[in-house]
Amino acid sequence: MNHTASDRKDWPLFEIFIRPKNGLSHKHVGSLHAADAKMALGNARDVYTRRGEGVSIWAVPAAAIAASDPADKASLFEPADDKVYRHPTFYEIPADVKNI
């Protein structure tokens, strides 16, 4: 048998997210290959939770993720930098006023 890339089709790539414990969000931990979603969940369990790292797994086909372009970083994220009125410290309240 030869080893040309053309005679096979890869199992698709899945991105794996794990919830470390209830109360916390799922966090991206890495990726793996699987033929289908069910296998991806099983593989994620075996690959990424061997030391009890999680209580819940999401497997997302990598192709299904829409990602922002780093080139747009300035236009996407910098405008938020000067919107100081979104932060509580923008508002001045006399020190005598409690519980606010």
């Binding site: 199992w11 290959h33 099983g42 075996d46 690959v47 061997r50």
Partner: peptide, 11 residues
């Protein structure tokens, strides 16, 4: 046959 399955069988 594949790396993921290697890990699964070993588990």
């Amino acid at each position: 046959p594949e790396l993921e399955e290697d890990i699964a069988l070993t588990n």
